[in-house]
Design a protein around this nucleic acid. Structure first.
Lengths: 185, 185
DNA sequence: GTCTATAACTTGATAGAC
DNA sequence: GTCTATCAAGTTATAGAC
């Protein structure tokens, strides 16, 4: 604990993510972030120095949390695929935990062309896909599962409900099951 | 032809879409749009009056083009599902036709919370899904195909290449084929 | 560690010349 | 139908008080 131990830093990152997740990157102004975290604009800039430093904060935190989530995925009793698809929806709806918010934030920034966000997404996305492939033993299937999750996220992020999620997961399990049976795994 | 017949209007909508598709909604300022279309800011505002009117222009055009695309999808020789998945990637990469650009633009705006864009997306998305279901004879499968397309779009829009697209389509055809065989269609 | 005040710049929109 | 000012509002960032 040699670094300054203020949770104000984390509150500021939280506020930034929540604003981006709720109303897009444009709405996450320094003023808005500071107000939501309960400090002034000057207070924010003491902790981060610039808007870019705030971005670095989110990126770092996402990488940390995603690494932990990849392990949770590997250990999930319902299987990695089910875990991934299910959590994709929660994330999009904005009702999830800290990592969900970080993921949405980074995805949004990446879509706006923020190069560093694209790089971070590529990294964690590839780690997730590798974990899926590990369990499914099938690269193409791992990609399909991931694309389904991405599609679910996209719809959720626009508040377009996917009403037949349960049927989709069920059908996915069927395909996974038949593959496992066919390959003797 | 009672309305003023200037193609400047269309050039302005094109410029707006290209900017949003390339670098996000924030980059599509009145100045930037006008410059890209080769007119001044005043010239732009003569044609549209406000940024909101520019949005209406894109929304109207998308609805028109999407209706035509739905018909093309129904008539596609490779099948509606294959057509939908394949065109999802082209759209995301930004190298597509006019409708592709309009779709990306509206999706981006929808994700930023623009209510009218969300509504337009919901509408055309539901029409596409209905056309898929018509051919596949299976609601859940139509949703899966659509989610796959959405996932492909998302990755393309961040310039994250999906290198095994061919395998994904092939696997999808297998699942569709087995369903048709099972249901006797 | 947090605040206020303010500088420097960008944005959407208006007014009026041509 | 298109242009050049011009404005008010909002944005990031700095300086310095407390």
């Amino acid at each position: 604990m040699t670094e300054p131990r203020t949770d104000t830093r984390d509150r500021l990152i939280d506020a930034y993510c929540e604003l981006v997740a709720a109303s897009g990157a444009r709405s996450a102004t320094l003023d808005a972030v500071a107000a939501r975290a309960g400090v002034s604009k000057g207070g924010l800039l003491y902790h981060f120095g610039s808007k870019d430093a705030l971005l670095s904060g989110v990126l770092d935190r996402l990488r940390r949390l995603a690494a932990a989530d990849t392990e949770a995925m590997r250990a999930a009793p319902e299987g990695a695929a089910h875990y991934y698809v299910r959590t994709s929806v929660v994330a999009g709806a904005g009702g999830g935990d800290t990592m969900d918010k970080d993921v949405i934030t980074v995805l949004r920034l990446a879509q706006e062309g923020e190069e560093r966000a694209v790089e971070a997404y590529r990294e964690v996305s590839e780690n997730w896909r590798a974990a899926l492939e590990e369990q499914l033993g099938d690269r193409t299937l791992s990609r399909i599962v991931q694309l389904l999750g991405d599609g679910l996220w996209m719809n959720s992020s626009m508040h377009v409900p996917v009403d037949d999620l349960e049927e989709v997961i069920e059908r996915l399990e069927e395909v996974i099951g038949s593959r496992h049976a066919a390959s003797g795994g």
